[in-house]
């Protein structure tokens, strides 16, 4: 009796049933075969609300194996609610090892960021995507956007960038900045900051994108061209920061602004917590790291 109850209470490996995983893997294979193309798939209900990464979780569940090592980040951090709960979820339903170290992970599920540390061949980066259709804001009809992709009618994408320059004097889009994949499909990198766009280009890792509510999967295979759209006289450029990370002193990394008090005090720290910790562990210091703070 007891053994029987244990039996039915157990989850299938990685939560999804095998048929579902096969269906999702087929979608993933098609997505890899047509880089940047949005493949519809039969997205399942997951034990978490839409917007919390149901698409990414389904993709991860379909590609994860017992010997994989999983890292999950929300923004760049391993220790935020969303990251912690998804990591715990896979520990429970797949019993896989987890890590916060980018280099140790075989699968990294992310909401916004691409780790600062360059990814390696064999790693898989899984993105949680809220709105996969880059043309959506200007063209609400799905039938029309599909046709536009099919016929490579991407003039509209530049309309959005034109509007940015007309209104702000420069391209003000800072995240979900549209890219063209392998010279063919225009793709929304989703809520990643444009700072990370160059990391997608010719990446050694496989990049998979899952949108649960919108039921779309798309992919960028390793060593694929990913070019950010721009104008000849307003070329694409990434954000720059005026100061280094307050904790590790890192430059050329993406920083988050942290408000320190109610008198305008603030500091800029690495968005990628793992990278920041690794740098501090190897002796790098920023102006607000512990030792200096103690001297104030």
């Amino acid at each position: 009796m007891n053994a029987h109850t244990d039996n039915i209470a157990q989850y299938n490996f990685a939560y999804l049933d095998e048929q579902t995983k096969r269906m999702i893997r087929r979608a993933i294979l098609k997505a890899i075969a047509i880089p940047g193309y949005q493949v519809p798939f039969a997205s399942r209900e997951m034990p978490m609300p839409y917007g919390w990464g149901t698409g990414g979780v389904q993709v991860t569940a379909s590609v994860i194996g017992t010997d994989d090592v999983l890292k999950v980040i929300d923004q760049g951090a391993d220790d935020t609610t969303n990251a912690v709960s998804i990591r715990a979820f896979f520990q429970k339903v797949a019993n896989v090892d987890v890590t916060t170290h980018t280099a140790d992970a075989t699968i990294i599920q992310t909401r916004h960021r691409i780790p600062e540390e360059p990814l390696k061949a064999g790693q898989v980066l899984v993105y949680q995507v809220p709105i996969p259709e880059p043309l959506r804001f200007l063209e609400p009809r799905e039938t029309e956007t599909r046709k536009m992709h099919a016929l490579e009618e991407y003039g509209l994408m530049h309309v959005k960038l034109y509007e940015d320059i007309a209104q702000h004097g420069h391209i003000a889009t800072t995240f979900a900045y549209p890219v063209k994949v392998e010279g063919r499909y225009v793709m929304d990198p989703s809520p990643t900051p444009k700072f990370d766009n160059p990391k997608m280009h010719m990446s050694k890792a496989l990049q998979l994108f899952g949108a649960g509510r919108e039921k779309r999967i798309y992919a960028v295979p390793p060593y694929t061209r990913v070019e950010s759209l721009d104008f000849e006289d307003h070329p694409f450029e990434i954000q720059t920061f005026d100061e280094p990370c307050a904790l590790c002193g890192g430059t050329n990394v993406y920083l988050d602004e942290v408000v320190l008090d109610d008198r305008g005090g603030r500091m800029f720290v690495c968005s990628d917590t793992d990278n920041c910790e690794a740098r501090r562990a190897s002796g790098h210091r920023g102006h607000l790291s512990g030792e200096e703070a103690a001297t104030i």
Binding site: G155, L156, H158, V159, I165, A166, D230, F231, E232, D233
Partner: peptide, 17 residues
């Protein structure tokens, strides 16, 4: 401006100015 420019961008013009 974008309404007028859209057709130009659609045929591949990529110079904002």
């Amino acid at each position: 401006g974008a309404n007028v420019g859209e057709r130009l961008m659609a045929v591949g013009q990529r110079h904002y100015g």
